[in-house]
Design a binder for these strands. Sequence first.
DNA 1: CGGTTTGTTTAGAATTATTCTAATTCCTTC
DNA 2: GAAGGAATTAGAATAATTCTAAACAAACCG
Lengths: 147, 147
Amino acid sequence: MASTSETHDALTKRLTDTGLRATPQREVVFKVILEKRDHPTADEIFARVKAQMPTISLATVYNCLETLVQNGLVRQVNFDRAPTRYCPNLHEHAHFHDEKTGAVHDIDVPSEVMVKLRELLPSGYDASAIELSFRGAAGALAKAKRN
Amino acid sequence: MASTSETHDALTKRLTDTGLRATPQREVVFKVILEKRDHPTADEIFARVKAQMPTISLATVYNCLETLVQNGLVRQVNFDRAPTRYCPNLHEHAHFHDEKTGAVHDIDVPSEVMVKLRELLPSGYDASAIELSFRGAAGALAKAKRN
DNA sequence: CGGTTTGTTTAGAATTATTCTAATTCCTTC
DNA sequence: GAAGGAATTAGAATAATTCTAAACAAACCG
């Protein structure tokens, strides 16, 4: 797993490359998202970050999340109109939303499938992003697999 | 194209089958969604409906939309955190969201592709719904095709 | 260095889509 | 045609997010 300093460096580079500053707030928000990859909401991130940096404000968490998203360091995930969740997995993947528990799981999507999906578009349509999500129940079998 | 009375009957049947009433408000909301299949938001539907029924309230539009969705007569579509849109196309399909114009277009998805997507899920995952959406630009070619 | 500019954080107000509340109206049925 | 349940309504409430304006911090420059 990536060490703290590695992620720190990645963050710093990404930000400074775009003329942005690697502030302590941005670093701790990013760290928290990497630490527990459970697709937390902004509120949840705020709570986790406050444990390490009690003076941070919710607005700052939203600001940091916005810059992280804009710089391609984290990904936003939306289900219906529920609060936006944040995901540090940058590989092409889909999401499974467990209706019972509310948990979100990453689902691998081979790039040939992505290609197939893109081929569904009639000519003249150019997709910059494709979003695929599943909703349903992750049964006992699925839970067992994760442990 | 379905006549007004046909859609009226379909609606009536669907609602009464579930012990619900086919009220004028529900009928006009449904009609408006069928008339212009441009994936309107609740606000847009409200505006269109008010032209025919000036006394209707926004709360009623939301109520009607909810019952229509629950009874499988229209489908909800969400893009990021934008206002929910409503779609009368009940066939399996995806959505393309034009970033420039904000327009939403239906994209056919053959059921064999849906089957393939479902196969991406590890064992133990059971999806009750699959959502696929594209975001990007629908160029001149695509627009020409629609006219 | 000291001053200026530029970027960042912050608290709280504002916004916005949606839901809730409580009262009224409308059907349906007996 | 009265009772009871369902639906509608206006407006208040909610909740996630964004905005605002002020304070703060860091880099920049002579």
